[in-house]
């Protein structure tokens, strides 16, 4: 069967809420409207207004109430609509969510998930197109997950909801309508994907390409093209940005001796900056050349769609960068 990323997110939410009455979901326009992307459509009818709750535009209170609910026994899923809006409740996430248990002691567990739609979407402009993973990689204590396909999205969201640690769950919105062929029996089963486990999306021998979120399908397409040119690319999706599955990534680099990172966010201080620093620190002797960072240009996302597309890595840019490594 074919399933979209958006449906997988919705299915994970519904299945978990049926399983555990302590789970509730709240955010802007999630109830009657069913979220602006339709993700939570039908959930108000199934779970009622106490468990599917609209909020006013009060992001700091959405995050705050997720903390308060989580530490006192509920398992909230808080929705921020766009990951860009994490910036208006940055302190609540950076200081409170990430540090609460550390600052107050082991009693204070926060089983909560912050979900938000991430990245570009054709003309959404500078304040509705950001990827924020790298901002929050700087917050020890936070789990950060960005799935790249429907199967992973469902399994990882279930794990996020079941985790006793707070999770920032980023959903690249250009992937929402992407379809994936999945085994129906497995999809319908109660499968989960462990947090902190990367996935080798394509095996290769010449270069390790670590790709995040929306960049995973582009990396796979690039790998296909490059294979025809005689370059064998191993594509690894970390899936969990923090904590990072260094074992899987490092094992790949030890095999290929070359590494590149492709991400949708800005290059400077991005995910790739951290990963590249880590690779050279810990795998210097394994590398046959500099680690390549393929990322968005360091500009606010332009509203003009051709320029938006120009600023974000595409298959051609990925291919050109990889070719340049040999």
């Amino acid at each position: 069967m074919k399933v979209t990323y958006a449906k997988a997110i919705g299915d994970a939410l519904k299945e978990e809420m049926r399983r555990d009455s302590k789970i509730l979901l709240f955010g802007e326009d999630v109830a009657e409207f069913g979220n602006i992307f339709g993700i939570t459509r039908g959930m108000l009818e199934e779970f009622g207004p106490k468990r599917i709750r609209n909020t006013p535009i009060t992001e700091t209170a959405i995050i705050g109430s997720a903390i308060g609910a989580a530490e006192t026994g509920l398992r909230p899923v808080a929705e921020l609509m766009y990951t860009d809006f994490t910036t208006v409740c940055f302190a609540e996430i950076f200081h409170c969510v990430a540090k609460w248990r550390y600052m107050h002691g082991p009693e204070y567990k926060l089983p909560l998930v912050i979900r938000a739609a991430s990245g570009s979407s054709n003309g959404a402009g500078s304040e509705h197109s950001n990827c924020v993973e790298s901002l929050f990689m700087h917050a020890p204590g936070l789990t950060i997950i960005t799935p790249s396909c429907a199967y992973d999205a469902k399994g990882l969201l279930k794990s996020a909801i079941r985790s006793d640690n707070p999770v920032l769950f980023c959903e690249p919105k250009l992937l929402y309508q992407s379809k994936q062929e999945v085994d129906e029996a497995e999809y319908e089963s109660d499968y989960t994907i462990p947090i902190g486990l990367a996935d080798v999306k394509r095996e290769g021998t010449d270069v390790t390409l670590v790709a995040v979120g929306l960049m995973v399908p582009r990396a796979l397409e690039a790998a296909e093209k490059l294979a025809a040119e005689g370059i064998s690319v191993e594509v690894i999706d970390p899936r969990t940005i923090a904590p990072l599955d260094k074992d899987t990534i490092f094992a790949s680099i030890r095999k290929t001796h070359r590494a590149a990172i492709v991400e949708e966010s800005n290059k400077t201080s991005g995910i790739g900056a951290e990963f590249a620093a880590m690779f050279q620190e810990e795998l210097y002797d394994e590398l046959d050349g500099p680690v390549a960072r393929i990322a968005a240009l360091d500009v606010p996302m332009p509203y003009n769609i051709p320029m938006e597309h120009y600023s974000i890595p595409d298959v051609e840019r990925i291919c050109a960068t990889i070719r340049g490594m040999f």
Partner: peptide, 29 residues
Amino acid sequence: RLQDGVLGMSGTLGCDAGISVGAALTIEA
């Protein structure tokens, strides 16, 4: 201590306001 009902405090004063709202969600539930 949480066992006494103490929810914790944010050193960035005021950031913890929503936390009281969340605890009230649990009370309601």
